[in-house]
């Protein structure tokens, strides 16, 4: 297990560091306490500071972590991440992260360059946050029976605060719907994913790095509202999945999709049902009863914890339950 994790880290994560920094990271990672490597969720690289390793939401202390990241390390790391091709990652850099091979996401922070109040690019980058993605089979096992009724998938909104496991659950539902779930009477579905932030499928060079199922068509890095219409027209999906909705345009596109008979699965940032109602785009969808199920995840305990599930009329379907086995495994992106 440790061998696999180590090999994957070497091949997909440490490879984005320049050699001297990579050696430092290798030494530090090899001195992590047992089990910490498997739970590693983030590596934080900040100029002038030692490397920091986040395991299961908390920073793990590492002995002899005294190497401070230099400006040259940061510059070289950016060149490796961007493959010396800022033009090829323009939109991602503008959004503050780049998705790399393996579906991992490297966030970056520096000075934002604005044009008419809109971020054009980032300059003088001083820190990176490597978020390690994992395939987490079974993460949706608690949610699945709630969103498949009489062998048919229901339109579902997965809501929760950042880090609560929304994308992980969506990805897992995507895979399950694409494969079909015979025990729930769900036949395999044609799934369309509009992956604006490359988080669901984690496409790298057009190839999904996460397992999203065999009948899944992905529109990567495409704006959600436009992408949903494109997929409906071009690919005729049974199920449409997209991440982090919230604008009026998103709401209009989802209502259009619903009218077209497509089941929509989406996620949204919210800490409570009241939060959802306060956002104009989402409240419009709730008023129109566009979602048959609204699943609220909690970030207060372990990621993947289901706080509540409501039906389209807003009736709660259950009390608070933990994601159980899914919880730990949903700790990735």
């Amino acid at each position: 297990m440790r061998g696999n994790t180590w090999a994957r880290l070497e091949a997909e994560v440490l490879v984005y560091m320049p050699q001297n920094l990579r050696r430092v990271a290798q030494n530090l990672l090899s001195s992590l306490p047992p089990g910490a490597l498997e739970g590693l969720s983030e590596i934080r690289v900040r100029q002038g500071m030692p490397l920091a390793f986040m395991c299961r939401g908390a920073e793990t202390p590492v002995p002899q972590n005294d190497y401070c990241v230099s400006q040259d390390d940061i510059a070289r790391m950016f060149n490796i991440i961007s493959a010396n091709s800022v033009h090829a990652h323009e939109e991602e850099i503008r959004a503050g992260y780049v998705t790399v091979k393996g579906g991992h996401r490297i966030g970056m922070a520096g000075k934002a360059v604005l044009d008419r109040g809109r971020v054009q690019t980032l300059r003088h980058i001083r820190s990176f946050n490597i978020r390690i993605a994992r395939d987490l089979p079974g993460a949706s096992s608690v949610v699945l029976p709630l969103v498949v009724v009489s062998g048919r998938p229901l339109a579902t909104l997965v809501a929760g605060p950042p880090g609560s496991g929304k994308t992980t659950i969506l990805r897992e539902l995507c895979r399950q719907f694409s494969n079909g779930v015979p025990e729930l009477g769900l036949r395999p579905q044609n799934v369309g994913v509009v992956d604006e932030r490359s988080e669901i499928a984690g496409c790298y060079g057009g190839i999904p790095q996460n397992d999203v199922g065999p009948r899944t068509d992905i529109l990567d890095a495409c704006p959600k509202a436009e992408g949903m219409m494109m997929l409906i027209r071009a690919m005729g999906p049974d199920v449409l999945i997209t991440d982090e909705i919230g604008t009026i345009e998103d709401a209009v596109a989802i209502l259009e999709a619903t009218v077209a008979g497509v089941v929509v699965l989406a996620s949204a940032h919210a800490s409570s049902r009241a939060d959802l109602s306060r956002r104009p785009g989402l409240s419009r969808l709730l008023d129109a009863r566009a979602f048959g199920r609204i699943v609220l995840l909690s970030g207060s305990r372990e990621p993947g914890t289901i706080e509540q599930v409501w039906d389209a009329a807003g009736e709660p379907l259950l009390g608070s339950i933990a994601g159980g086995a899914a919880g730990d495994r949903a700790a990735g992106l």
Partner: peptide, 13 residues
């Protein structure tokens, strides 16, 4: 040079 450069900037390559 770009592939082997360990983060060598494109201008140097």
């Amino acid at each position: 040079l770009l592939r082997q450069g360990d983060g060598l900037p494109a201008k140097a390559a």
